[in-house]
Design a binder for these strands. Structure first.
Lengths: 136, 136
DNA sequence: TTTTTATCCTATAGACTTAATAGAGTATTC
DNA sequence: GAATACTCTATTAAGTCTATAGGATAAAAA
């Protein structure tokens, strides 16, 4: 399942990507437009600012705005920042690899092979989709 | 993330698929071979018996065995029974569809389109993989 | 018929994660 | 210096996942 955090985060990014001139948009405006709890969205935007998709301005006329062009923001990055690993098991994760406790030999593991295939199919989608592609 | 239930369930199915003559295998034997908590595995096997992958025999010489050929068990079925929806959001699920609370119009939702693509890519993998393919 | 073997079934506990909220702090603009 | 809007930490409530406990039931063997 996709977490609400990720879902809301993507919606917020898409909303920002659709703004004219990349003007700063206030949290309250995004929250209202996308039906998201403002406080929850606040923390999501904050985490995306820390990882470099967004920047923000305080005070009147402030808000959040993208610091990359929507065509340059790949969904692989977005998903990894918001959701974490794209792989469904840590032992096939490219960026968050971890060995399984119960598995003596990954190469003989029936789940391992299947999950590599699933991961690669998802990666193909995310790699070929930029934020720009979500807003048309 | 793939739940342990699903992971263990697939491993158990694969172990059964690898048996000669489809002999009944005891829970204890599967649990030991795959490093799974026996009691937990018990409940997993039980749920798969109820949905028709397996049957069981009680008493000495009893255990679980497949009631379909491994080449006829598609991974779509296995995942749906053990894990639930293949889709990452209910609003793009083929078998467990649910409308989103926050979304007035699915067709305009940026997440919706992306998640359809991800769902379809995963479906392609699962549809083209049978239990048989996991044990070679 | 009794004992042994092994599955069947319900309930529940503990740990963890997620979603949301609260409230005070900081920076910027007017 | 007042108003605006982001920043940050902590906490709570609800839900889910993993695992365990313990007795019930059925089949086979003695």
């Amino acid at each position: 399942m996709l977490s609400k955090k990720t879902k809301y985060g993507i919606k917020a990014l898409a909303f920002l990507a659709g703004q004219e001139e990349n003007r700063p948009v206030q949290i309250a405006e995004i929250a209202k437009h996308e039906n998201i709890s403002q406080k929850f969205l606040e923390s999501i935007l904050l985490s995306m600012r820390r990882t470099g998709f967004l920047s923000s301005k305080k005070g009147k006329g402030g808000g959040y705005y993208l610091i990359k062009r929507p065509s340059e923001i790949q969904m692989t990055e977005v998903i990894r920042v918001l959701e974490g690993p794209i792989a469904m098991v840590p032992c096939v994760s490219l960026n968050y690899y971890e060995k399984c406790d119960d598995c003596p030999d990954e190469n003989k593991c029936s789940v391992h092979k299947l999950m590599i295939a699933v991961r690669d199919s998802a990666l193909t989608v995310y790699r070929n989709t930029a934020l720009q592609d979500l807003i048309s």
